[in-house]
């Protein structure tokens, strides 16, 4: 039953991805841009222009291009269905390989940020709801005024100013590792995991050191909505009949709070999932400030360079990850709330 649900969701996901791919394929070609001119400079000769167009394949009819990209035209070479996302026009490397380098950086960054944000924000939201008007509640209010009202790059810059420039605790915002160190031998693509696998603790701690400020910035930004949401759901759960009844049954305060939290977390899961999917591309400002070569940076660079295959690849991969995250959260939701499992 459960397996069937998962398979159905995955099948629907594949169809969604395919539809999105086709849509994006046409949408980027609607941009008022000429990718060829980037390769040939100003005032090219007709022949040079045609040659460049032929080189990146935009001289063919658009339907042929689409079939090629999807992998439905075997004579033209491998495409999406064969697991080939094409070659980047800028880096000349396969898009898949580019993404495999950039994506782990972002995933590492936002996953860490999410874990820490949840650890901090959930108890705070809970406390604020349990004691309305208390100290936590007031602190949350003040924090909400600040964190919500300034953009994340501003906080990132402020953190760099304070912790690197003034206090000197943090490293300069120049990438993931100290330029003097060499990156760990790539196995998973995730630097932290790779350095641990290689038993290289120096690099591992250096990585954490470099990730400190970007993660802190994201935690600072993410905690706002999470606290707010947990608090709201918790407040609602606390007025539920089953919480009143747990009190009437003389259950200790900790049990009552647990009852309410369980009911509050279930609806919170969905929003956390949406937030995660959003941050995949949305972390780009923080990546830029700290010069982290993540997927957000890669996406922006590809768009500015009209690098069609790269744009397509990024959209596809981010969507696929979002879909998987939603699926996982729905499964988790069903474990927490048996009423959903039944349906």
């Amino acid at each position: 039953m459960l397996l069937r649900t998962i398979l159905r969701r995955l099948a629907v996901g594949v169809v969604q991805l395919l539809g999105l791919t086709v849509a994006v394929f046409f949408l980027i070609r609607l941009m008022p841009a000429d990718p060829v001119s980037r390769f040939v400079g100003i005032n090219p000769s007709k022949a040079a222009y045609a040659q460049a167009a032929k080189a990146i394949g935009v001289d063919r009819p658009i339907s042929t291009q689409l079939l090629h990209y999807l992998g439905l035209a075997p004579s033209q070479g491998k495409g999406l269905l064969q697991g080939n996302l094409g070659t980047s026009w800028v880096s000349n490397a396969p898009v898949l390989k580019d993404i495999a380098t950039a994506l782990p950086v972002t995933l590492e960054l936002i996953t860490m940020a999410f874990i820490i944000a949840l650890i901090i924000a959930v108890p705070i939201g809970m406390l604020a709801a349990l004691r309305p008007g208390g100290k936590t509640d007031k602190a949350v209010f003040v924090y909400g005024l600040f964190a919500g009202s300034q953009p994340e790059f501003w906080w990132a810059l402020l953190f760099v100013f304070v912790f690197y420039f003034k206090l000197g605790i943090a490293p300069p915002p120049l990438g993931l590792i100290n330029p003097m160190n060499s990156p760990p031998p790539p196995r998973t693509g995730f630097y932290t995991i790779d350095s641990l696998l290689a038993g290289d603790l120096t690099t591992f701690f250096d990585l954490l050191h470099h990730l400190m400020l970007p993660v802190a910035t994201l935690v600072f930004i993410l905690s706002g909505p999470i606290i707010k949401m947990v608090r709201q759901n918790m407040e609602q759960a606390l007025t539920a009949d089953f919480v009143l009844y747990a009190r009437a049954a003389g259950m200790p305060g900790s049990t009552v709070a647990r009852y309410a939290l369980r009911a509050a977390m279930a609806p919170s899961m969905t929003l956390i999932g949406i937030l995660y999917g959003f941050m995949l591309g949305g972390a780009v400002l923080v990546e830029s400030v700290f010069s982290l070569p993540g997927i957000g940076q890669y996406a922006v660079r590809s768009i500015l360079a009209f690098d069609y295959p790269a744009i397509q690849g990024v959209v596809l991969v981010i969507t696929a990850i979002s879909l998987v995250v939603y699926l996982l959260l729905d499964l988790l939701h069903a474990i927490i709330d048996p009423r959903l499992a039944q349906e």
């Binding site: 009844y245 009437a248 049954a249 003389g250 259950m251 009852y259 369980r262 009911a263 048996p338």
Partner: peptide
């Protein structure tokens, strides 16, 4: 509460934790 003084309410399904 719940030891010497106990309560049952209307809408019993609402008084039970759904999860």
């Amino acid at each position: 509460r719940g030891k010497d003084l106990a309560l049952i309410v209307q809408n019993p399904r609402g008084a039970l934790h759904p999860m």
